[in-house]
Simulated scan of single mutants.
Amino acid sequence: MKTYAIISDIHGNSLALQAVLRDIETRQVDRIINLGDHVFGALEPEATAQIIRQTPMICISGNTDREILESLNKPSEKENMERVKADLSEQTIGWLKNLAPTAVCDDLFFVCHGTPTSDDEYLLEQVKATGVFVYNDEELVAKTAHIPQRVILCAHSHVNRVVQLSNGKVILNPGSVGLPAYLGNGEHRFAMESMTPHAKYALVQVEGNEVNIQQVHCTYDWNKASQAALANGSEKWSQFLLHGRMPKDLRWE
Rank of each mutant, 00 (worst) to 15 (best):
L35C: 05
L124M: 05
L153Q: 05
H158G: 03
E187L: 14
R150K: 12
V141G: 08
Q91H: 07
G208I: 14
K97D: 07
R161L: 08
A49Q: 11
D30Y: 04
L230W: 04
F110Q: 02
E235H: 05
G178P: 14
V163E: 01
A145C: 03
M81K: 00
M81A: 01
A129V: 12
G94P: 06
P148Y: 05
K248D: 08
I58Q: 10
V29R: 02
G208M: 05
L123W: 01
T3I: 14
L96W: 10
I33W: 01
C112I: 06
V170E: 06
K128Q: 03
H146I: 06
V134H: 10
G184I: 15
T117I: 06
N73F: 12
E82T: 09
V216W: 06
E210R: 13
N232H: 15
L140E: 00
K224S: 09
Q28G: 07
E25W: 00
L35W: 10
I24D: 06
E207R: 14
D65G: 02
K224D: 07
V29E: 07
G233M: 06
E79A: 11
D221A: 05
W95I: 14
W95V: 09
V111G: 14
Q126H: 11
E125A: 00
V111N: 02
I147S: 07
P101D: 11
A19S: 15
D23A: 15
Q54G: 10
M1E: 00
R251L: 11
F240W: 15
I60F: 03
T64N: 03
D120V: 02
D120K: 13
G233R: 14
N98W: 00
S76E: 02
E207C: 04
V39Y: 04
N136K: 01
V132R: 07
K224P: 00
I32D: 03
N98P: 02
P45V: 08
R22F: 11
D137I: 01
H217T: 06
P247Q: 02
L172G: 10
Y201C: 01
M57A: 13
A103P: 02
A42F: 11
H156M: 02
H188S: 06
S89T: 12
P247V: 00
H113S: 09
Q91Y: 10
D119V: 14
G36S: 11
H11L: 02
S157K: 06
E138Q: 10
L123K: 08
G184P: 03
L242F: 12
A5H: 07
D107L: 05
V84Y: 01
K143C: 03
N167S: 13
T48M: 04
L88C: 09
P197F: 13
L96I: 10
P148W: 04
D249Y: 11
L88A: 07
Y220A: 10
I51W: 06
H243T: 14
L99M: 09
